[in-house]
Design a protein around this nucleic acid. Structure first.
Lengths: 211, 211, 211, 211
DNA sequence: CATGAATGAGGATTCATTCAT
DNA sequence: AATGAATGAATCCTCATTCAT
């Protein structure tokens, strides 16, 4: 019994360290690019020694899957929170979704930029199961819109809701994370104005009478 | 006279070297992270010495704008071609735009991936003037849509056209270059189906009666 | 009474741990350089924690004398066995010594290689008392030859016998353990032929009429 | 022509650096074991930067074959010198060989110890061709003795000469490099006395009347 | 006592940049 | 001008050792 609790204590300590390291990386990512962050810097931020880092991770890249996992959990939480905050109409729901998503991306800009870029350069950092999970999260968002299916004029509402989510995310990622770059510079709108227009785009897509 | 030709010869050689270096970087970028490509590797690939590299470029980052320039010219050509192929209606124009853009991105997927990602990792690689130029190209595309302004119901048609271009590009980049990743996995559509839906999204946005 | 048995049990456990650690080192030494074996590796192999290692040994080097001790005992046994098998003449005794020594080295090639090399890399691992003991063992072998002193023509028979033992061992170690390397490659003889010649060398040395 | 000389100059400089590094290692080996010498220490001794080391060698171990090559050349030189210093009798030749060999080993003790041990731990550092060369050198020493074949009583004089060389080397390596260890401790003789006895051993072996 | 997480000094290694040839 | 050898700061990484649990 005692031995068990000792082991648990050790594991807890170990978990604690891992969390500290991930948090340190997360923090650093708000001001620097992943590639420019040294392990010494991460460990200093985390208040642990470099050896401790290497006891847990093979190298800096090994952190990324964990970072992704962390982010995934926060994304899931965010999705759940949204589900608990249903709106009176599809239109309002879309507006809320846009606003909330914009805020969420802002809050996680550093981590997101790293994950977004690195997963494109090194697809192997994301496991199939992680992508599957993320896909499922998106489905939940689409399902949230589907609860207003009576308001949706599209002949294949599920397809349309998924497409809406895709456009929502791809637009906001570019606007929030890379506002000064292609393709965001195609539109001169401020972030707020962009949200309004994006809302409009999605509302029109889902609600307009179609051929 | 003779000196002139010597200088010309030297300039030609110089041009040649520059091209070789750009090609070497371009090649390397298809398999490796820009950050992980060493100057030694680039020069080796190009068959010149490191000293020669430094005679021509300040550092690795200085190479990217040249790469970008190449692509820019092709983009401009594509825009011009589109302008010479006006359609009978906004609806048709949007459909054509989506199809053509999808094809263009496909044709340049390799270098695009590089530029798209690396400009995000190293925003300083793109000069302000280059971004301005690109911005101008996008304006041209928006202007193309604006020629159908009578069909546009949006209260601020220019804003809407720009937004449409932004959404067009961000959607297609993700679908064409990173179909297996977030956020493209939010929608299960094939590339063709995605084009159809994207067309619909844009048409509805520009043409629908609005509040 | 009970306490005693607890202590005994603890001592037994302690002994057990020590043996496991020695065995782990011994195993590792057959494939790796002592210098390249980490304590973490030894303890992992032995199935104990690093802390336990440090409770029992000051450091890695402290382990080797124990390894040496094991071998020493077997060497002593072998010497004793030889003493109980006296021959009729010096000549025969030398022949037997060569044959038996060759066989003994063969039988212990693995651990010998370790000790032979590592004692050269880390002379401090062998205590003075261990070297003294080994020296004593060699004296016993020399003494064995000295029992035939009437047949020895050398003016300082004891010196000669000791020299003979030295040459016997150094020749056989090289031939048996490192037959493909310098200096064994100086002579193309098979192991059996080498034994014959070595016998001849020693016989001539001890028995020839000298100036 | 000029280009050629530039290249030659560069190569010469490069060679120079390599030599400095090898010399630095050689020097260090007289006071420290190979395993305990850091690359920083070697480069400091050589008066070059660490980067320079890595431009030429993958790591410390990569130096060993070069060290061996260096040593081999000196060994060959030593053999040649001996051949130019023929003695009046086999007896004198053996005496000279023992003395000279003892001196040679002394002069190269540091390097030799490293090569001797490391070639036993990592046989792959020596190529077959290098061993073949060394074998050839030993043959030359044996041939030197064979020039006195009329004085050799052994029925197979070539075999005997080779065996003599083998015993010469194995005895002296142990006595010169590892005098305090097994098996050298079997004999209490000083280095000089050991040389005398070794001379006696070899003389008796080659010259005694045999069965 | 045993455990194994944490430490951090020490050493290995890389690579952009300089500069003698 | 071109070359590529040399530089050394910056970073990575290991592992013996300690110590809280």
């Amino acid at each position: 019994m005692q031995e068990d609790s000792i082991i648990e204590a050790k594991q807890a300590r170990s978990q604690q360290t891992q969390k500290k390291l991930l948090a340190a990386l997360s923090d650093s990512l708000t001001t620097q690019f992943f590639e420019h962050i040294s392990i010494a810097h991460i460990t200093e931020q985390a208040g642990v020694s470099v050896g401790t880092f290497y006891r847990r991770f093979k190298n800096k890249e090994t952190l990324l899957p964990y970072l992704y996992q962390d982010f995934s959990e926060q994304f899931k939480d965010w999705v759940s929170a949204l589900e608990g905050n249903k709106q009176g109409s599809l239109s309002d729901q879309i507006a809320l979704l846009v606003t909330e998503c914009n805020a969420f991306l802002h809050a996680h800009a550093g981590v997101l930029r790293t994950l977004h870029l690195n997963s494109r350069l090194y697809p192997e950092i994301l496991t199939k199961s992680q992508l599957f999970e993320r896909s499922h999260d998106y489905q939940q968002l689409a399902a949230l819109l589907m609860t207003y299916s009576t308001e949706i004029s599209h002949s294949k509402p599920k397809i349309a809701c998924e497409m809406a989510i895709f456009m929502l995310i791809s637009n906001l990622i570019e606007k929030v994370l890379y506002s000064e770059l292609t393709p965001a510079i195609a539109s001169p709108l401020s972030e707020e104005e962009n949200q309004q227009e994006l809302t409009l785009v999605l509302q029109n897509y889902l609600q307009s009478p179609q051929a």
